[in-house]
Simulated scan of single mutants.
Amino acid sequence: MILTLIGIGTGNPEHLTLQAVRAINAQDMILIPRKGEGKADLAVLRRDICAQVLTNPDTQVVEFDLPVRDEATPDYQQRVRDWHDAIAATWVAAMDGAQGRIGLLVWGDPSLYDSTLRIAERLEPAPVIEVVPGITSLQALTAAHGIPINDIGAPFVVTTGRQLRDHGWPAGADRVAVMLDGACAFQTLDPAGLHIWWGAYVGMAEQIICAGPVADVTDQIITMRAEARAAHGWIMDIYILARH
């Protein structure tokens, strides 16, 4: 079996590369996860992408329900490992013994804060894994704001909201890109001299963005985020912080 992980960008079908379109049409089966009623739009977007670019009549599209992560386990790392084990088992069940080429459509790029590659390593027998890169939310965010990610010759760090909240500003970084932040962790930092470029659903029709000194726009971002999540049932947001 060949398992192809296809980066599909941030939900905009125009983010698909020609390589991604070819890969989608080369599959014998494409798996589409369902993440529950509150995130039904995510499955719909994958279906829409297939409807727009899948022209191979022999490709089977199979949907399956993702298991819910057990938040009761106190050890975060163990929670994630157990959840990945459960997801791998659902993949196997959805494949139902199928061989050939099987594809998964991955948000953004499979290499950046995505666990699809780690889950794939749990499959037995181990498949041949192919990866098709995709546009990331970080690229879509910098494009939306028309900014570079780094200052001239300067380093930047990509991290998570959990890491920013628990450990503060990363040492040695002039700029910090923050992903997977469910609670606006930038609120835990001293806002003096901090500038933020924030966006949700970047690259999509629903895109919303905000930028400015953290001290001035924090309340606005929190309100925009809450309203967008209530409207859509889910939210994917990302931001960049810089010290001035």
Results as ranks from 00 to 15, higher is better:
153 G>E: 12
132 V>S: 00
154 A>N: 09
108 G>A: 03
24 I>V: 15
161 G>N: 02
178 V>D: 00
85 D>A: 13
237 D>A: 10
93 A>W: 07
7 G>H: 03
141 L>V: 07
219 D>N: 05
151 D>V: 05
145 H>L: 12
183 A>Y: 08
196 I>N: 04
170 P>C: 08
185 A>K: 10
43 A>T: 10
26 A>S: 15
157 V>N: 02
37 E>I: 08
18 L>V: 07
76 Y>L: 15
16 L>W: 08
81 R>E: 06
44 V>D: 06
161 G>L: 06
112 L>F: 14
74 P>K: 11
180 L>V: 05
61 V>G: 07
209 I>K: 13
222 I>T: 13
101 R>M: 04
94 A>S: 02
197 W>G: 00
11 G>R: 03
75 D>Q: 08
124 E>Q: 13
85 D>I: 11
76 Y>W: 10
26 A>N: 09
105 L>P: 10
85 D>E: 11
210 C>P: 00
13 P>S: 13
109 D>H: 00
60 Q>M: 13
208 I>N: 01
49 I>S: 02
132 V>W: 01
142 T>G: 00
205 A>H: 13
225 R>M: 12
9 G>Q: 04
209 I>A: 10
75 D>K: 10
90 T>Q: 15
151 D>R: 15
184 C>T: 04
85 D>P: 05
57 P>N: 12
212 G>V: 09
157 V>L: 02
83 W>P: 02
182 G>W: 08
168 G>P: 04
223 T>L: 10
205 A>T: 15
219 D>Q: 08
173 A>E: 01
187 Q>I: 07
11 G>S: 06
64 F>M: 07
123 L>G: 06
114 D>T: 01
159 T>Y: 09
116 T>Q: 03
17 T>S: 13
196 I>M: 06
45 L>K: 02
232 H>E: 01
141 L>M: 15
17 T>L: 05
20 A>N: 03
173 A>C: 11
218 T>L: 11
65 D>E: 08
196 I>Y: 01
236 M>A: 02
164 L>W: 15
132 V>R: 01
71 E>A: 14
